[in-house]
Simulated assay, not measured.
Amino acid sequence: MKKSTSLSNILQLVIPEEKLRPILEELNYVDVGRKFTVYDLLLFLGEAAFQQWKGYRDGVQRMALSGLSSVNHSTLSKKAKDVPYELFKRLLNVMIGLCNRKTKRKLGIPKELLIVDSTTISVGLGRLPWAPIKGEKAGVKLHAGIIGDRMELHKVTETTGKEHDLNSCKDLLDSQYILVADRSYGKHKLFDLYQAREDRQYFVIRLHNNTTFTNPISRHRKRPFSGSIEQDLTCQLGKKKALSENRFRVVILKDPKGKPVILATNLHWYSPEGIANIYKKRWQIEVFFRWIKQHLNIPRLFGTTENAVYGQLYMALLVYVLLKFLFEQGNATVHFSAKLTFADFDRLFTLQTLPLEWRIYLADAADIITRI
């Protein structure tokens, strides 16, 4: 039972080796490995993220126990350096398409939230000289969008740590959702672009406290504001060259410490309290980043090249998507007395001490995958 419920066994059901071939052909990559192939690397990185191995050398000692092909440290390191990380990025998108619930929408206004932000993984400059940040530090960024409430990973892209978040935002947009973001994404000219798009991008984005409101007009309201709301108005944002072409709605509230929170949006039919509640959902992406860093070994970078670093990070995110899917499907399948939290599922699965009903469910993984 233990072997049949290992992560690598389930990965092989979800992503059989033949799925890699057309992608590798598109990337013009020829796998010349015999003892250790690209597919072996994929399974290694998956188990390394799941079991939080410390690096290539540590993984070499644990591979056989996880049912993986044994190989020496040098071969493993060279393979990770050689395989283009675009392969793992595409496989992540395949996994997201397989495991995330399909959004069924009618024509109309989107209601679900797409929460975007980035997280930086930093190391010493000597390890990643191609990705300097400041001083003696280097690092890379993962820019992610998750579906609010469901905590499903929707889109991801990567940059070096110096890259501004705004430059990656275009890769995360999806007009089927309301974009929710912090001040790093609050550029007025982008708001005009969102408004001008044929498939308008609705958004709730925090502004800097020194933002200029040009020609402000307070919105009429019969009842006093509730909660921490202080103002609700429409205006153009910025001044001179930075002045927005369109008028946008601005909702101003106070955070628990009494500091102002200024939100810009093009959702004119929501109450100001509704706009504030949408922005409060932004904390979910902080929870997401904290979880993957604590549970998927993301801060511990094994290699030093772009392929090795980004390949490891994309495989860790792929494991997150798969675990989230297995957890949600399992909780909907097992008896209510056997239901688990996501944290407990991850911990018990890693230790191979899941309750019997869960082990039976995972042993039937082939049927789970065919129902995706």
Score class of each variant (00 low, 15 high):
G238K: 03
E136Q: 05
R221V: 01
P355G: 07
A181E: 08
R57A: 13
Q312I: 02
K222Q: 10
L7A: 04
D367M: 02
F302E: 07
Y270R: 14
M1I: 06
K240T: 11
M1E: 10
I262K: 09
I278S: 02
R371E: 12
L92F: 07
A338R: 07
Q201K: 09
Y361K: 00
A276G: 06
P260I: 05
A365E: 04
L356C: 03
K78A: 11
Y279R: 13
G108M: 02
K293W: 03
D192Q: 12
R200E: 15
S271C: 03
V204S: 00
I229T: 14
G33M: 12
K257R: 14
R101F: 06
G33Q: 13
P299I: 06
K2Y: 11
I146C: 02
G55H: 07
I109F: 08
W358P: 00
V140R: 00
F336R: 04
L193H: 11
D364H: 06
G330H: 05
K324H: 15
D165Q: 04
F225D: 10
H73W: 06
A181G: 15
G59H: 07
Q236W: 09
L7C: 04
Q51R: 13
A338Q: 13
M315V: 15
R282S: 07
V287A: 10
V14P: 02
T75K: 02
E328S: 13
M95V: 15
Q52C: 10
I15Q: 01
I205L: 10
A316I: 01
H208D: 08
L113K: 10
N9E: 05
L207K: 13
I372S: 08
G227S: 08
P84Q: 06
L114E: 03
R21A: 12
Y185E: 11
N277L: 13
I252R: 14
G33Y: 08
T212L: 12
E357F: 02
K293G: 09
D364L: 11
I298Q: 01
L351E: 14
F248A: 15
Q294S: 12
S122E: 14
F342A: 01
R90C: 01
Y320G: 03
L114D: 01
L323S: 09
A366R: 07
D171M: 02
V83I: 14
I205H: 00
C99K: 00
S8A: 15
I252Y: 02
D149K: 15
Q61K: 09
T353K: 13
K35M: 05
T157W: 00
T214A: 11
E158T: 10
P272I: 08
P129I: 08
A181I: 09
T211P: 03
S184V: 06
C99A: 07
G55R: 05
